[in-house]
């Protein structure tokens, strides 16, 4: 556990970096880090710097700093933990941005996507919908199965059903499914 002074320094360093540090730097990970490393870094930062850590000091400047820093930690994690937003962010970063702008971050989810709570199930769902549109039934079916393994949700079941009962569905897929 860091001492109070170390923590204060850490907090102030991050606060100074609000206008320049990348999400990766903010969480202390590399741009090549995978999801698990990013998630672990986020939890560690959260445990150390959550505004709750500073409640005992009363509503002073330290708590306000912690609040500002923590909101950016949440933002960094919400972008980096969503593969689509992370891609958009990496592109923006090439253009010199340290932060993904509000419009890009506020990506609208479709009503079906909103019914899924697992981030990755949502990605498989989105991928499966696209593949189904392009007639790639088998690939779509695999994505749906992967999604279902993460979250057994009605929207994924419906999509699975649409793939299975697709008029152009190859007999082999149907045979495989009903086997």
């Amino acid at each position: 556990m860091p001492t109070k002074n170390e923590l204060r320094e850490h907090l102030h360093a991050l606060q100074a970096g609000l206008s320049s540090m990348t999400y990766y730097e903010f969480l202390g990970v590399r741009p090549s880090s995978d999801y698990v490393a990013i998630r672990d870094a986020y939890y560690d930062r959260a445990q150390q710097l959550h505004p709750d850590r500073f409640v005992a000091f009363g509503a002073g400047s330290l708590q306000r700093s912690a609040y500002a820093v923590y909101k950016r930690i949440s933002e960094a994690f919400s972008v980096l933990s969503d593969p689509h937003l992370r891609v958009a962010y990496d592109e923006a970063r090439l253009g010199g941005a340290h932060r993904l702008d509000d419009v890009a971050r506020a990506r609208r989810r479709s009503p079906q996507e909103r019914q899924l709570s697992n981030n990755f199930a949502r990605i498989y769902f989105r991928a499966a919908v696209k593949k189904l549109e392009r007639g790639l039934l088998r690939a779509a079916w695999i994505d749906v199965q992967l999604g279902l393994s993460l979250e057994d949700a009605p929207v994924l079941r419906e999509l699975e059903n649409r793939i299975i009962t697709h008029p152009e569905g190859p007999a082999s897929l149907q045979a495989e499914v009903f086997r």
Binding site: M1, K4, L7, Q47, D52, F54, V55
Partner: peptide, 25 residues
């Protein structure tokens, strides 16, 4: 909430128990 990070004389912080040290997100 109140026990987290209570400063001690040596400039460190008290070592709270596991439950008391965790922050809820």
């Amino acid at each position: 909430l109140m026990g987290s990070l209570v400063p001690m004389a040596d400039g460190g912080v008290s070592a709270p128990s596991a439950a008391a040290s965790a922050v809820l997100l």
